[in-house]
Protein backbone atom coordinates (compact mmCIF):
# COMPACT_ATOMS: atom_id res chain seq x y z
CA UNK A 1 0.00 0.00 0.00
CA UNK A 2 2.74 2.43 0.98
CA UNK A 3 4.77 1.45 -2.00
CA UNK A 4 1.81 2.09 -4.22
CA UNK A 5 1.27 5.50 -2.67
CA UNK A 6 4.90 6.31 -3.22
CA UNK A 7 4.60 5.23 -6.82
CA UNK A 8 1.51 7.32 -7.26
CA UNK A 9 3.21 10.34 -5.77
CA UNK A 10 6.19 9.84 -8.04
CA UNK A 11 3.88 9.52 -11.01
CA UNK A 12 2.04 12.67 -10.10
CA UNK A 13 5.35 14.47 -9.64
CA UNK A 14 6.45 13.36 -13.07
CA UNK A 15 3.23 14.60 -14.55
CA UNK A 16 3.64 18.03 -12.98
CA UNK A 17 7.25 18.24 -14.11
CA UNK A 18 6.34 17.34 -17.68
CA UNK A 19 3.64 19.96 -17.69
CA UNK A 20 5.87 22.63 -16.29
CA UNK A 21 8.26 21.79 -19.09
CA UNK A 22 5.55 22.11 -21.73
CA UNK A 23 4.40 25.44 -20.37
CA UNK A 24 7.93 26.78 -20.17
CA UNK A 25 8.63 25.65 -23.69
CA UNK A 26 5.52 27.40 -24.81
CA UNK A 27 7.11 30.57 -23.59
CA UNK A 28 5.86 34.04 -22.89
CA UNK A 29 2.22 34.70 -22.49
CA UNK A 30 2.50 37.65 -20.15
CA UNK A 31 0.14 40.14 -21.73
CA UNK A 32 -1.98 38.57 -24.32
CA UNK A 33 -4.81 40.28 -26.08
CA UNK A 34 -6.99 41.20 -23.18
CA UNK A 35 -10.40 42.63 -23.77
CA UNK A 36 -12.28 40.16 -21.66
CA UNK A 37 -12.65 41.51 -18.16
CA UNK A 38 -13.86 38.52 -16.24
CA UNK A 39 -11.62 37.71 -13.33
CA UNK A 40 -10.23 34.25 -13.09
CA UNK A 41 -12.07 33.85 -9.80
CA UNK A 42 -15.41 34.29 -11.52
CA UNK A 43 -14.24 31.89 -14.17
CA UNK A 44 -13.59 29.25 -11.60
CA UNK A 45 -17.07 29.65 -10.17
CA UNK A 46 -18.65 29.40 -13.55
CA UNK A 47 -16.46 26.48 -14.32
CA UNK A 48 -17.74 24.46 -11.40
CA UNK A 49 -21.36 25.34 -11.97
CA UNK A 50 -20.95 24.57 -15.65
CA UNK A 51 -19.72 21.14 -14.70
CA UNK A 52 -22.67 20.62 -12.37
CA UNK A 53 -25.12 21.89 -14.93
CA UNK A 54 -23.88 19.75 -17.71
CA UNK A 55 -23.93 16.77 -15.40
CA UNK A 56 -27.62 17.45 -14.82
CA UNK A 57 -28.18 18.72 -18.32
CA UNK A 58 -31.00 16.31 -19.00
CA UNK A 59 -33.43 17.64 -16.44
CA UNK A 60 -34.76 21.17 -16.08
CA UNK A 61 -37.10 23.12 -13.87
CA UNK A 62 -37.30 25.00 -10.57
CA UNK A 63 -38.15 21.87 -8.60
CA UNK A 64 -35.30 19.63 -9.74
CA UNK A 65 -33.14 20.39 -6.73
CA UNK A 66 -35.84 19.37 -4.25
CA UNK A 67 -37.37 16.56 -6.26
CA UNK A 68 -35.22 13.48 -6.23
CA UNK A 69 -35.27 12.08 -9.72
CA UNK A 70 -34.35 8.74 -8.29
CA UNK A 71 -34.76 7.39 -4.82
CA UNK A 72 -33.42 5.00 -2.24
CA UNK A 73 -33.63 1.96 -4.45
CA UNK A 74 -31.90 3.38 -7.45
CA UNK A 75 -29.27 5.31 -5.50
CA UNK A 76 -27.14 2.26 -5.82
CA UNK A 77 -28.91 0.94 -8.85
CA UNK A 78 -27.22 -1.19 -11.46
CA UNK A 79 -29.58 -0.49 -14.33
CA UNK A 80 -31.83 2.24 -15.57
CA UNK A 81 -35.25 1.44 -14.12
CA UNK A 82 -38.45 1.53 -16.16
CA UNK A 83 -40.87 4.35 -15.34
CA UNK A 84 -43.13 2.81 -12.68
CA UNK A 85 -40.18 1.29 -10.81
CA UNK A 86 -38.37 4.62 -11.00
CA UNK A 87 -41.44 6.45 -9.66
CA UNK A 88 -41.82 3.99 -6.80
CA UNK A 89 -38.29 4.93 -5.74
CA UNK A 90 -39.24 8.60 -5.54
CA UNK A 91 -40.62 9.68 -2.15
CA UNK A 92 -42.36 12.75 -3.62
CA UNK A 93 -44.46 10.64 -5.98
CA UNK A 94 -45.86 8.27 -3.35
CA UNK A 95 -49.53 9.28 -3.80
CA UNK A 96 -49.27 8.85 -7.56
CA UNK A 97 -47.64 5.46 -7.07
CA UNK A 98 -50.44 4.44 -4.67
CA UNK A 99 -52.97 5.45 -7.29
CA UNK A 100 -51.15 3.57 -10.07
CA UNK A 101 -50.71 0.39 -8.05
CA UNK A 102 -54.36 0.39 -6.99
CA UNK A 103 -55.19 -0.52 -10.57
CA UNK A 104 -54.03 -4.06 -11.21
CA UNK A 105 -51.61 -4.31 -14.09
CA UNK A 106 -51.09 -0.59 -14.58
CA UNK A 107 -47.58 -0.46 -13.08
CA UNK A 108 -46.33 -3.36 -15.24
CA UNK A 109 -48.08 -1.84 -18.23
CA UNK A 110 -46.27 1.45 -17.73
CA UNK A 111 -42.99 -0.43 -17.16
CA UNK A 112 -43.54 -2.67 -20.16
CA UNK A 113 -44.71 -0.15 -22.74
CA UNK A 114 -42.04 0.62 -25.30
CA UNK A 115 -42.19 4.40 -25.11
CA UNK A 116 -44.19 6.78 -22.94
CA UNK A 117 -44.25 10.32 -21.59
CA UNK A 118 -45.60 10.67 -18.06
CA UNK A 119 -46.80 13.89 -16.45
CA UNK A 120 -46.42 12.93 -12.81
CA UNK A 121 -48.27 15.05 -10.22
CA UNK A 122 -46.18 15.24 -7.04
CA UNK A 123 -47.71 14.50 -3.65
CA UNK A 124 -48.79 18.07 -2.85
CA UNK A 125 -50.73 18.21 -6.12
CA UNK A 126 -53.09 15.55 -4.78
CA UNK A 127 -53.73 17.72 -1.70
CA UNK A 128 -56.10 19.76 -3.89
CA UNK A 129 -58.42 16.75 -4.10
CA UNK A 130 -60.43 16.20 -0.89
CA UNK A 131 -59.13 13.15 0.93
CA UNK A 132 -62.40 11.22 0.99
CA UNK A 133 -62.89 11.83 -2.73
CA UNK A 134 -59.38 10.56 -3.48
CA UNK A 135 -59.95 7.56 -1.21
CA UNK A 136 -63.18 6.76 -3.03
CA UNK A 137 -61.42 6.98 -6.41
CA UNK A 138 -58.67 4.61 -5.25
CA UNK A 139 -61.25 2.14 -3.90
CA UNK A 140 -63.15 2.24 -7.16
CA UNK A 141 -59.84 1.78 -9.01
CA UNK A 142 -59.11 -1.38 -7.04
CA UNK A 143 -62.55 -2.70 -7.81
CA UNK A 144 -63.07 -1.72 -11.44
CA UNK A 145 -59.46 -1.49 -12.66
CA UNK A 146 -59.17 -0.08 -16.16
CA UNK A 147 -62.90 0.75 -16.22
CA UNK A 148 -62.59 3.12 -13.25
CA UNK A 149 -62.56 6.90 -13.22
CA UNK A 150 -59.10 6.77 -11.64
CA UNK A 151 -57.72 4.84 -14.60
CA UNK A 152 -59.11 7.47 -16.94
CA UNK A 153 -57.50 10.28 -14.92
CA UNK A 154 -54.14 8.49 -14.80
CA UNK A 155 -54.21 7.59 -18.51
CA UNK A 156 -54.96 11.28 -19.12
CA UNK A 157 -51.44 12.03 -17.74
CA UNK A 158 -49.62 9.65 -20.11
CA UNK A 159 -48.63 10.02 -23.78
CA UNK A 160 -48.01 6.98 -25.95
CA UNK A 161 -44.65 8.23 -27.23
CA UNK A 162 -41.40 9.14 -25.51
CA UNK A 163 -41.24 12.93 -25.84
CA UNK A 164 -38.12 14.68 -24.59
CA UNK A 165 -38.13 18.39 -23.73
CA UNK A 166 -37.34 19.36 -27.33
CA UNK A 167 -40.35 17.57 -28.81
CA UNK A 168 -42.99 17.54 -26.07
CA UNK A 169 -44.50 20.97 -26.78
CA UNK A 170 -47.73 21.29 -28.71
CA UNK A 171 -50.93 19.25 -28.82
CA UNK A 172 -50.43 15.71 -27.55
CA UNK A 173 -52.84 12.78 -27.43
CA UNK A 174 -53.05 10.90 -24.11
CA UNK A 175 -53.69 7.23 -23.47
CA UNK A 176 -57.19 8.29 -22.38
CA UNK A 177 -57.76 9.43 -25.97
CA UNK A 178 -58.03 13.16 -25.24
CA UNK A 179 -55.56 15.99 -25.75
CA UNK A 180 -53.06 17.92 -23.63
CA UNK A 181 -51.36 21.17 -24.60
CA UNK A 182 -47.71 21.54 -23.60
CA UNK A 183 -46.21 25.01 -23.79
CA UNK A 184 -42.97 26.80 -22.94
CA UNK A 185 -39.37 25.67 -22.96
CA UNK A 186 -36.76 24.44 -20.47
CA UNK A 187 -35.31 27.94 -19.96
CA UNK A 188 -38.46 29.89 -19.14
CA UNK A 189 -40.51 27.02 -17.76
CA UNK A 190 -43.09 24.65 -19.15
CA UNK A 191 -46.79 24.13 -18.58
CA UNK A 192 -49.19 21.36 -19.48
CA UNK A 193 -52.91 21.98 -19.80
CA UNK A 194 -56.01 19.90 -20.51
CA UNK A 195 -58.15 22.99 -21.02
CA UNK A 196 -59.52 22.82 -17.47
CA UNK A 197 -56.36 22.61 -15.38
CA UNK A 198 -52.98 24.11 -16.26
CA UNK A 199 -50.05 22.61 -14.36
CA UNK A 200 -46.51 23.89 -14.04
CA UNK A 201 -43.63 21.51 -14.79
CA UNK A 202 -41.58 21.44 -11.58
CA UNK A 203 -38.89 19.22 -12.98
CA UNK A 204 -38.93 17.94 -16.50
CA UNK A 205 -37.14 15.64 -18.92
CA UNK A 206 -36.33 13.04 -16.24
CA UNK A 207 -35.13 9.99 -18.15
CA UNK A 208 -36.16 6.43 -17.26
CA UNK A 209 -35.56 3.24 -19.21
CA UNK A 210 -38.74 3.55 -21.28
CA UNK A 211 -40.29 6.95 -20.58
CA UNK A 212 -39.58 10.62 -20.00
CA UNK A 213 -41.12 12.01 -16.81
CA UNK A 214 -42.29 15.58 -16.11
CA UNK A 215 -43.14 16.19 -12.46
CA UNK A 216 -46.05 18.66 -12.30
CA UNK A 217 -47.70 20.67 -9.54
CA UNK A 218 -51.39 19.90 -10.25
CA UNK A 219 -53.49 16.87 -11.05
CA UNK A 220 -54.99 17.26 -14.53
CA UNK A 221 -58.61 16.52 -13.76
CA UNK A 222 -60.18 17.83 -16.95
CA UNK A 223 -60.69 14.41 -18.53
CA UNK A 224 -63.00 14.41 -21.52
Amino acid sequence: MKLQNLRRTTGAGLAVAALALTLTACGDDGDGAATSTTSSGADADQASSAAADSAGADTFGPGCSSIPTSGAGSFDGMVKDPVATAASNNPLLSTLVTAVTSIDGLADTLNGAEALTVFAPYDDAFAAIPEDQLGAMVSEGKEKGQDSALYKVLAHHVLGANEKADSVTGEQETLAGDMLTVEGDPESGMTVSDGTVTAQVLCGNIPTANATVYVIDKVLTGVE
Binding site: A50, A51, S54, A55, A57, P68, T69, F75, K80, A86
Partner: peptide
Protein backbone atom coordinates in the same frame (compact mmCIF):
# COMPACT_ATOMS: atom_id res chain seq x y z
CA UNK B 1 -26.42 13.54 -4.14
CA UNK B 2 -26.56 15.65 -7.23
CA UNK B 3 -24.32 13.17 -8.95
CA UNK B 4 -26.45 10.34 -7.64
CA UNK B 5 -29.60 11.93 -8.98
CA UNK B 6 -28.03 12.37 -12.34
CA UNK B 7 -25.98 9.26 -12.72
CA UNK B 8 -27.51 6.76 -10.30
CA UNK B 9 -29.68 5.15 -12.88
CA UNK B 10 -28.41 6.80 -16.05
CA UNK B 11 -27.06 4.47 -18.66
CA UNK B 12 -23.45 4.37 -19.62
CA UNK B 13 -23.65 6.33 -22.84
CA UNK B 14 -25.37 9.22 -21.06
CA UNK B 15 -22.76 9.09 -18.36
CA UNK B 16 -19.81 9.18 -20.75
CA UNK B 17 -21.55 11.90 -22.75
CA UNK B 18 -22.13 13.98 -19.64
CA UNK B 19 -18.55 13.63 -18.49
CA UNK B 20 -17.36 14.64 -21.95
CA UNK B 21 -19.78 17.58 -22.07
CA UNK B 22 -18.68 18.75 -18.64
CA UNK B 23 -15.04 18.46 -19.60
CA UNK B 24 -15.58 20.39 -22.83
CA UNK B 25 -17.53 23.13 -21.03
CA UNK B 26 -14.55 23.55 -18.72
Amino acid sequence: EWAIRTFGSADKAVLVGSVLTGALAL
